[in-house]
Design a protein around this nucleic acid. Structure first.
Lengths: 349, 349
DNA sequence: CTGCATGATGTTTGCGCAAACATAAAAGCC
DNA sequence: GGCTTTTATGTTTGCGCAAACATCATGCAG
């Protein structure tokens, strides 16, 4: 899995034959030892002010950039944080990644990003690629699907945060919310408004573990009132706005008197809503539509979708802090963080 | 800039005191030398089939994951590709990043992602963080703003691709399109339809170099017909859908007879279009609206925006191939790739 | 059977840095 | 002033791996 080809000029030489500047070069110029340069970079307090100034000057003159690969090898800490998302398709995780980078970058860490895709093989390949870089921490926004993958992570001993979900059996740490409770809450909200013939649209199986949890919540909420579920969906991923018309047709064909639809994703809800409008169905008069995620599209584009809002950015920030905390040796008091959710009612219900 | 804190157990030991598996361990178990294990991983053809099988078995049994940091240090190639975006806010570059990762991952490279934000200091900090990891290549989707940053990159000798733009003076390689030409083409398209009092909304200065290029194109197209420009905007970034109402007000106040608006971004165009609808203005009858970028929101959400479509994914794929090509020693024939653009007319004009 | 490729493996060394230890100088202390 | 403690710096060593070179078979032509 290592790069197969050979770079043109990364043999330590630049294009013009110069060798890359090392600590030794800086040290020689400043008239100190290599170790003192290292100290100026990592623990400046332990170096006399005058010496520090000379070294800093030398570094500036030579435009020295420390080699963190070498440093990491020696110190046994790479300064890398691995982040695993399932796909770039839906921008669900962008906020989380943004919050995560901003949090860990301030401490000098960099982000190693990978998309596992929907193939199991890809998932393991990616984990190997990330673990091989010896990250100091890993954030999983994607769900792990194989026992082997789980095994690999646990065996690595790396700090791990599972995000966007509170797993019943976490690998290590976790930041997220209870998808089941969220699905139940949204369904309950629809019931409170007065809807009784509520359909659910979303993944029916396969890889979308979280969507399935939300569906479970939907089932529970209906069961509490003794109402039968009406489920429509597909196991194929990813589901998006383009599936709206087909799913709407299916709902209306199988459950003609449906008065509300709860979609496992906003993109899906947007698709249903637009399809309904196009068919001349009054929303929410004839059919109410609710989504999940409060992804950017939802509100401002005039769809004004009732949805469940998740603090995506906060998840990323918390995940970063969990990792930083774990690395600071002070034992963390709480390693499972529930950021909750919020049912936001807008004009689509 | 190095991580300030100390990890709990990355001293080469796992939590339970086990040492991390190394090549030596695999070698011992397979009854070969460490070097033979290295060969099995990188150049399996150079190892006898029987030996290879033994080594592979040993690796599997020990769940060995090669340390690419150490390997990179020895081989002077990190297997990392640095990617610099300006912000996660707009999902503009998600497709490009996706195309890039998919391209380079097949060759065993991993992505090091960083957001430079809108601060110049952040830009340099990020470059240091990335260059310090000794990437084999860097893709810039963000524009470079300081001479020092440019200097740093050139001095590093790393292969560089500037994406989403064909700079007049590229640092190294580039994949993108001519923003000026695109702005001109869209304006010309509006003129061809028959609009004559066309306003432009977008960045008026500051960091959004590409937006300014598109504005330049707008000016040229109008000047060719002897029409005066009508420009509205702000230097503050980022501009988004929420700025729609204010900009629409400004347009109608300063240029009441405007019949079309060309926005430097789809998000902005969406904001203007929605604001116009809310005011009861007929789109495109009273006011036509055109955007730029064909970002996901545009079409399916019912806005049906006329826009300029850019092959964002192709940009990422090309960028990846440029880097891989540069690293394969075969001299590249073409290092500046223009992916062009496409004016897409929809119902908003 | 010699000689010389060719293939398969082993040995040595160093990538650039930081941990651990060693030393030297300065600063307190009675 | 001799003593310890503290502060500032230097020296040695090794992180885990791959490049370069060395070695040892084996094959095979003449």
């Amino acid at each position: 899995m290592a790069p197969a080809t050979d770079p043109g000029y990364s043999d330590g030489m630049e294009k013009d034959g110069r060798r890359r500047t090392r600590m030794d070069d800086v040290a020689a110029r400043a008239g100190v030892s290599q170790m003192t340069v290292s100290r100026v970079i990592r623990t400046p307090d332990k170096v006399a002010a005058a010496t520090r100034a000379r070294v800093n000057a030398a570094m500036a003159e030579l435009a020295y950039v420390p080699d963190m690969l070498a440093g990491g090898l020696a110190a046994r800490r790479s300064g890398l944080i691995g982040a695993v998302i399932s796909t770039f398709e839906n921008a669900i995780f962008a906020e989380t990644i943004a919050g995560l980078t901003e949090t860990v970058e301030t401490e000098g860490f960099s982000l190693l990003l990978g998309a596992s895709g929907y193939s199991l093989e890809g998932e393991e390949r990616l984990l190997h690629a990330i673990l091989g870089r010896r990250p100091d921490g890993i954030v999983l926004t994607a769900t792990l699907h194989t026992p082997a993958a789980r095994q690999l992570l646990v065996g690595s001993g790396v700090a791990i945060v599972e995000a966007w979900e509170i797993p019943s059996d976490p690998v290590d740490m976790a930041v997220g919310f209870d998808n089941r409770a969220a699905g139940q809450a949204m369904t309950a909200a629809l019931l409170d408004i007065g809807y009784r013939r509520i359909a659910f649209v979303g993944a029916t199986g396969g890889r979308d573990v979280r969507g399935l949890r939300r569906r479970d919540g939907y089932r529970v909420a209906l069961a509490e009132r003794g109402l039968p579920p009406r489920e429509v969906g597909s196991a194929a991923l990813p589901l998006g706005i383009e599936n709206g018309p087909a799913f709407l047709d299916e709902i209306l064909a199988r459950f003609p008197d449906t008065d509300a639809v709860f979609c496992s994703l906003d993109a899906l809800a947007a698709g249903i809503l637009l399809a309904a409008r196009r068919r001349g169905l009054d929303v929410p008069g004839r059919l109410a539509v609710a989504g999940f995620g409060d992804f950017a599209i939802a509100q401002p584009s005039g769809l004004d979708l009732t949805t469940v809002r998740i603090a995506g950015r906060a998840i990323g920030v918390h995940a970063g802090h969990l990792l930083l905390g774990r690395m600071s040796k002070v034992p963390l008091e709480e390693t499972i963080i529930d950021v909750g959710f919020e049912v936001v009612r807008r004009s689509s219900t």
